[in-house]
Design a binder for these strands. Structure first.
Lengths: 254, 254
DNA sequence: CGCCCGCTTGAGCTCGCTCAACAACAGTGG
DNA sequence: CCACTGTTGTTGAGCGAGCTCAAGCGGGCG
């Protein structure tokens, strides 16, 4: 066996309690913080009426489960705030975190009628929900929307292959450095500070994303800190001290 | 360093000589062996005129390079016969084989104006080529075609994440077993025998796909053979002796 | 207050990598 | 025709990076 099976997350929620996801009517795309990042951006401002009509707003507390691997899909989502993880689990508990979803990210990049991941909120999260049916109709009426979905699929594919390279051929330190740079870039796009990364997920989540154990993730953080690549007191708020030196660590092909 | 850098393939071709790719006029989709598998299948038989008009036929000898990572993209392709590999390389030579392409597979699943992979023919290969421009026009005229591309992107994404799970959390034996089963399934869809797999690629290619060294791939084959999961004399023609026992090895979530 | 969870650190071991050798084979050139 | 060379696949021996096991610390929550 290559890796210890992570202890399964509790079947529901975290911190003992599980609030049910809260549904609210959609309030309009105009003030949406994620609009410029999401598939919705492929539609001009004036043509969001159709979207708004179909959309529902959804709030998930940290630890809540949005969807289970293998369960039927009824909706697609756009994340407006917070963070979620997409998880696949083997029968014996070995876990892969396929990705972390943030504002603007799209949930529903599959042709399957079933969910391909279990999707869990890491922090308190808000989403826009669109029924699958309505989505199909919307895409026919607004081809740009379909193009937007395709574009997100292409990006997801590229990210997935980049992570394959990390998993297949890079050292723990390189994987973690690459991960931090990627998260920093994405959070900077979303208005975060350039050299700060928020990591609300646990070290186990990061490990299951990078193909490492918790211990190796922790040790790699310690090494990055000791050599002054990063600084942190709280393990969930990382300051990148030398992004360029970090980039040199990852030495990609560009 | 996690892995030895594979010696770079010769810049052009293999076996000393490199024939230039041969271009021929497209002869029509009717007799195409890959039609039912490819994006072209999303168009009804009668509406292939447009496709045929735009298409060119391309033949590559084994070892030839179709595209280089980072080079500008001008066309998309559908594979009609043979096999190719999609490769990404780091500056120091560490290599990832992102996938093996066979009849019906689509080349061009990216929104980038540049190629995301170096693409090399493993065996003699035939492709249909469509200029990028024409493709856009075709997709607007036939929305089903765009949907077909989206569907291929979804499948590629799923395959990529399945491989991520293998790379992150599975043993060499499990990775190889999963790989053989996947190749067998795909070749069976294409009319191959159910329990035979053709592996024209080298052990190094398989290693760079599964995140292993040549030696470990070879040893894993030997183990599978010793325990009668597979049988082979020629390392490129594998007979699966007990697909069900192999599947049990891979114990997925379904 | 006590328990549990998450993070970190240490000690030791194992599995897959590194290094090395060899056989089989194909292509090359004398 | 055969010696020579380079490539591919296989196997062995040994090593070290990352995993396993174990312990401790701090914070949050009941």
């Amino acid at each position: 066996m290559s890796n210890r099976a992570s202890p399964q997350a509790p079947p529901q929620g975290v911190r003992g309690h599980t609030e049910a996801p809260k549904r609210e009517p959609h309030v309009g795309c105009d003030g949406c913080l994620a609009r410029h990042l999401s598939v919705c951006a492929s539609l001009p401002q004036e043509e969001t009426r159709d979207l708004e009509a179909a959309a529902g707003k959804l709030r998930l507390p940290a630890g809540a489960t949005l969807a289970r691997e293998g369960a039927p899909r009824r909706e697609v989502y756009t994340v407006t705030s917070g963070m979620l993880r997409q998880v696949r689990v083997l029968a014996d508990g070995r876990r892969l975190v396929a990705g972390f979803l943030q504002a603007g990210d799209f949930i529903g990049l599959t042709g399957s009628t079933l969910h391909r991941h279990t999707i869990e909120a890491i922090s308190d999260t808000a989403l826009c929900a669109f029924p699958l049916q309505g989505m199909r109709a919307l895409c026919e009426r607004h081809p740009e929307l379909g193009a937007g979905v395709l574009d997100h699929a292409f990006h997801a594919l590229d990210a997935s292959e980049t992570n394959q390279m990390a998993l297949a051929r890079m050292t723990p330190l390189e994987r973690l450095a690459g991960f931090l740079l990627d998260m920093a870039r994405r959070q900077h796009q979303r208005g975060g500070e350039e050299d700060r990364v928020e990591l609300p997920m646990t070290r186990a989540d990061i490990g299951d994303h990078l193909g490492l154990t918790v211990e190796t993730v922790s040790r790699s953080f310690t090494r990055l800190r000791r050599e002054d690549f990063v600084h942190f007191d709280d393990p969930h708020h990382i300051e990148l001290r030398a992004p360029d030196r970090l980039r040199a660590l990852v030495q990609s092909t560009g």
